[in-house]
Design a protein around this nucleic acid. Structure first.
Lengths: 357, 357
DNA sequence: GCACGTGATGAATACGCATGCATTGTTCGC
DNA sequence: GCGAACAATGCATGCGTATTCATCACGTGC
C-alpha cells in the first residue's frame, strides 16, 4: 500500500455531493453561511469518501494551526508531567493540540524555538527550560505569543505565570520555625532557574528575619531530581563534625522525597522525629503513605488557566500581551513531615491540613 | 502588536538575495541542485529577514509533515512518561516532532484518530489506550502507518511492538515459586488491555504448570495506578478468614509500589519477609531505596527503535507494513522484594541481579 | 571546433482549503 | 405588489512552498 494513496479532497466531496468546493469548506466551518440541507448532503458524501479536512492546508489561509508548542526541559520532576497532561487536556477541549519540544536539562531552548517557528504554532509555553531573550523577541516579532510557565526571565518582555515562589519559601520557613527548628538545610534545584532561586530567597529571608544566622542554613544542590536530592542529602551528613540540621527544605517535592528516603534508608533517621522535611509543588506522589509531605501547593489549574488566557489563543485581534508577570499564591499543606506545633494555632487562612490517601 | 505582522516568505528572501523563489527553496532543501555561492547569498538574506521556512506550506506539496502523533491513554503510570520522553527525543534527533493526543483512560481513541488525521501526521504511535479496528484501517487507507506500543489488537492488521508479556509473567511466577511461595495474589491493570491480560495469563499458566490451584491465585483490579493498587491491596486483606497469600504480583511497577506501601503502612506487613512482591516494567522509580523492586525489565529502548523502524518514517516508497507483531523478551531483575532462594542457582541467562541507587 | 552532458537557474504550476466578491433566490416590510 | 435586505451558493484567487520543465552556461572529449 502506498501513502496518500486515496486521500480525498474537498473537490472530491463537492463532486459527489453535487455542490461546489466552497460549500464543502463551509460545511466544515462552524458559523459559516450554509443551508442545513446542503450541509447534510456534504456530510454524507464526506462520510462515503472518508473525507477529513486537511488542517495543514487550511492553516495556510487561516494562519492558525491550532497547535501549541510546549517546551519541556526535563521530566525528572513529575510535576511537569502533570503540567504537560493538564495542558494537553485543556487545549484538546478547545480543539487544539500540543506539539512537544524536549530540551536537554540546563541547555537553552533556542534551537527548539527555531524549530517550532517552522511549524507556525499559535503559541508557545515554556517550562522547566532556559531561554534567551533573543528568542523571545524572535517569537514576538513573528506574532507568536510565548509564556513562561513557572519561570521568568528578568529584564525580558516575555510574559510569565508562576507560583509566588518567594512567598512559598517564606511559608515553609514559618512552618519550620513554628515547629521549633533552629538549624536548616536546603536542597536546591537548577541554579539557573528562577524557581529554585526564588524559593531559596524567600526561605532564607524569612529565617533571617527571625534571627537565624546564614551559617545555620546549609545549601546543597540536588539537580531537581529524586536521585540528585538523595545523594545531596547524604553529602550533608558526610561531615560528621558538622551539627545535624533540624529541618530540611527540598526545593520541590520530588527532591524532598529523595531526601526523606536517604534519611530513612541510608542514614537511619526518622522523619519528622529526628528531622523535619518540607517540599514544594504538592505533587500527588508526595501525598502517598510513606511521605505525606508537608509542602506548598502550586495552584496548578489556576496557573494553567492564566497561562492560556495570556496566550489569547482565540483573540480575533491577535494582540500579544508582553511583559506580564503573574505570580499566584501557593498554600501551605500540612501533612506529616513537620510536627504540628502543639501550642501554635496555625493561621488557617494561609494553610490547611489534610488527610491522606 | 499584531500576529503574522511581518513573517517574511521565500519571495522576500529571493528579492533581497537577487535570486528566484525556487533558489530559496533549494537553498533550504538538502540535496537539491544549487551552487554553494547562491546558497550563501540566500542564507545571508534569510538571516537579515529572520526568515524561517514555513513547514506547513511545504508539507502541502511534499505530503510529509514531520509530525508523529502519540496517543496516550493516561499518565498515571510513569512508565509511559518515560516512553513519551524517549520517543520525543529520538524523533527530534530525526527532525521530527511529537504531537500529543491524550485520551480518557479506558475510552477508545477513535476520536483522537479523527483529529490527528486532520493534521496529516506521518505516523501514529498508540500506547496505553484502546483502539477500534475501524480506525486502524482508516489510517491504513490514508497511508498513515500506525503502530501499537505495548498493546495489540487481536484480529487487527495493525502492527504492534510489545514486550513478551506472557513470558514475563512466567518469569515472575518462576521467581515466586523458587522462593517458596504457594499462594498468590495479582493486582491487574486495565482489563481491556492486552498487556495486563497477557502478563496474568503467563503468570497463571506457569503457576498451574507447577501444580498451583487456580483458587490459590487471587485476582483484584488496580486500575493501573498507584492509588488503585493501594486500595486493591487493602481489599485483598479485608476478608480476615481468607488465608494471606505468600506472594503478590503487581502487573506493573507503579501498582507493585502502591501494593508495597499498603502492605507496609496500612497492614503492618514486611516485604519481602511477610509477603514477597514483584512488579513489571522496571521503571526507575521502582529502583529507589524503599522499593528495590524485583521486576521484569521491558527493553524500552529496543522497543522504541523497533517501533520507529516499523513506522518507516523515511522510506521513500512509503510502504506500510501491516500486521507485524514483535514481542521482545523482557528480563527478570532481581532486587529485594523477593527473597533469593538459598539453594536455588538462578539461571543467569534469564535474570540478573543489580545493586541499587 | 563541435556535439553533448552536466549543473545551475527561473518561470510556472500544483498542493487543499478559506474567503472576498458576485449572483441568485427568498422573505419581509410597507 | 414592489424594493430592500438577506441567506445561500459558486467562482476565482491567494496562502508559502516544492517541483517540473525548459533554458542557459559551461566544460569535456574527441
Amino acid at each position: 500500500m502506498t501513502r496518500s494513496s486515496n486521500r480525498s479532497t474537498s473537490f472530491d466531496v463537492a463532486a459527489l455531493a453535487g455542490v461546489s468546493q466552497s460549500a464543502v469548506s463551509r460545511a466544515f466551518t462552524p458559523g459559516s453561511s450554509i443551508a442545513e440541507e446542503t450541509r447534510q448532503k456534504v456530510y454524507e458524501a464526506a462520510s462515503k469518501l472518508n473525507y477529513v479536512p486537511n488542517s495543514i492546508a487550511s492553516s495556510l489561509t487561516t494562519k492558525r494551526t491550532n497547535i501549541v508548542a510546549l517546551i519541556l526541559g526535563h521530566m525528572a520532576n513529575p510535576f511537569y508531567t502533570h503540567v504537560l497532561h493538564a495542558f494537553s487536556q485543556k487545549l484538546q477541549e478547545q480543539g487544539r493540540q500540543v506539539l512537544i519540544f524536549t530540551v536537554d536539562p540546563g541547555a537553552e531552548s533556542d534551537e527548539a524555538i527555531l524549530h517550532l517557528l517552522k511549524y507556525q504554532v499559535d503559541g508557545v509555553i515554556l517550562t522547566a527550560a532556559q531561554l534567551s531573550t533573543r528568542m523571545t523577541s524572535m517569537c514576538h516579532d513573528r506574532g507568536i505569543p510565548i509564556v513562561l510557565f513557572n519561570r521568568y526571565i528578568p529584564g525580558s518582555d516575555a510574559s510569565g505565570v508562576r507560583c509566588d515562589n518567594a512567598a512559598g519559601g517564606r511559608l515553609i520557613a514559618e512552618a519550620f520555625l513554628a515547629a521549633g527548628a533552629r538549624s536548616f538545610a536546603m536542597i536546591t534545584g537548577d541554579p539557573k532557574g528562577s524557581t529554585s532561586k526564588d524559593r531559596v530567597r524567600g526561605f532564607v529571608e524569612r529565617l533571617q528575619e527571625n534571627g537565624v544566622k546564614r551559617s545555620d542554613i546549609m545549601e546543597v544542590e540536588g539537580q531537581s531530581s529524586y536521585e540528585g536530592a538523595f545523594n545531596a542529602t547524604l553529602s550533608i551528613f558526610r561531615d560528621k563534625d558538622r551539627p545535624r540540621p533540624d529541618a530540611l527544605f527540598g526545593i520541590n517535592d520530588i527532591m524532598a522525597m529523595g531526601a526523606i528516603d536517604a534519611l530513612r534508608y541510608r542514614l537511619g533517621l526518622r522523619v519528622p522525629e529526628d528531622l523535619m522535611v518540607a517540599g514544594f509543588d504538592d505533587i500527588p506522589e508526595g501525598r502517598r503513605a510513606p511521605y505525606q509531605l508537608t509542602t506548598v501547593r502550586q495552584p496548578i489549574n489556576q496557573m494553567i488557566e492564566t497561562t492560556l488566557s495570556i496566550l489569547h489563543l482565540d483573540d480575533p485581534t491577535h494582540r500579544i500581551e508582553r511583559g506580564i508577570d503573574r505570580p499566584i499564591s501557593g498554600r501551605l499543606i500540612w501533612r506529616n513531615t513537620i510536627p504540628v506545633p502543639p501550642d501554635h494555632r496555625w493561621d488557617t487562612s494561609k494553610a490547611e491540613s489534610e488527610s491522606v490517601v
